[in-house]
Design a protein around this nucleic acid. Structure first.
Length: 231
DNA sequence: TCATTAAGCGTTG
DNA sequence: CAACGCTTAATGA
């Protein structure tokens, strides 16, 4: 059986709500956890996807390295969320590296358990469909944001996603993240990210702290992120 | 030409 | 010590 924080994390995860006690019991039996320090690699690209990952504490990011050695960050994954369903489902190697952005505790559910859940539990299957659908919607919106919006709106989009409850179910107002990482996540330089954050602050949408960002007006952030550049 | 970026460096929390 | 602000040279639309 696993340690307390991991047990609680699994039991309070949204997908666990629809499980029978027996099913939950098996997941708790099979799940493992490991701590990673900041900057450590959790999963290596092109290695087999044996596990489904949950972020118990801290924050992870998903990235690839280009041939020239530049990192392209695809997503930041704050505590409370699960990732890697796609690769586990397909039984294919990891398409990306997973890196710890801060000191993090990560839970691992074996692929066999994941597949078993999918076959045994109708609620779990439904949850998974909704999860994948949310991801799909996110990427469609991301392309739209990238093509239509100015840089400030792109940063707004990036933040709106990080604070989006459907994608990342643990609600929070403040997030510890550097401006450099915001830049990486939104595909912009540190300078532009900083400029955008200042503008968002001036509009009263966020508060910027040292190495952290707090959302003051989430609806406004959402509007800015999705609105077709109104002013 | 003008905007944006990476890199370096001094300052600060 | 990491995050931030600022400067500068390179890059590119």
């Amino acid at each position: 059986m696993v340690k307390e924080p991991v047990r609680e994390f699994v039991e309070t995860s949204s997908w666990a709500r629809g499980l029978t006690p027996t099913q939950t019991e098996r997941v708790l039996h099979d799940v493992s956890a490991r701590a990673y320090s900041k900057g450590a690699t959790v999963c290596v690209r092109l290695t087999p996807s044996h596990e489904w990952l949950g972020v118990v504490e801290g924050m992870l990011k998903v990235e690839t390295i280009t041939v020239t050695g530049n990192a392209v960050t695809f997503a930041g994954v704050p505590a409370g969320s699960w990732l890697g369903e796609g690769a586990v489902l397909k039984g294919e190697p990891r398409p990306y590296n997973v890196i710890a952005m801060r000191d993090s505790l990560v839970a691992f559910v074996p692929r066999s358990t994941f597949i078993w859940l999918l076959e045994e539990s109708h609620p779990f299957a439904l949850w998974l469909i909704q999860q994948l659908n949310a991801r799909l919607g996110y990427y469609v919106a991301l392309v739209q944001s990238y093509r239509l919006n100015d840089t400030t709106a792109q940063v707004a989009f990036c933040l709106a996603v990080l604070f989006n409850e459907e994608l990342y179910p643990t609600p929070r107002r403040r997030l510890s993240i550097s401006q450099e990482e915001i830049g990486r996540l939104s595909g912009l330089s540190r300078q532009i990210a900083n400029q955008a954050l200042r503008e968002l602050h001036e509009r009263g949408i966020i508060q910027v702290g040292y190495g952290s960002i707090e959302v003051v007006d989430l609806p406004a952030l959402h509007r800015l992120a999705h609105g077709a550049s109104e002013r």
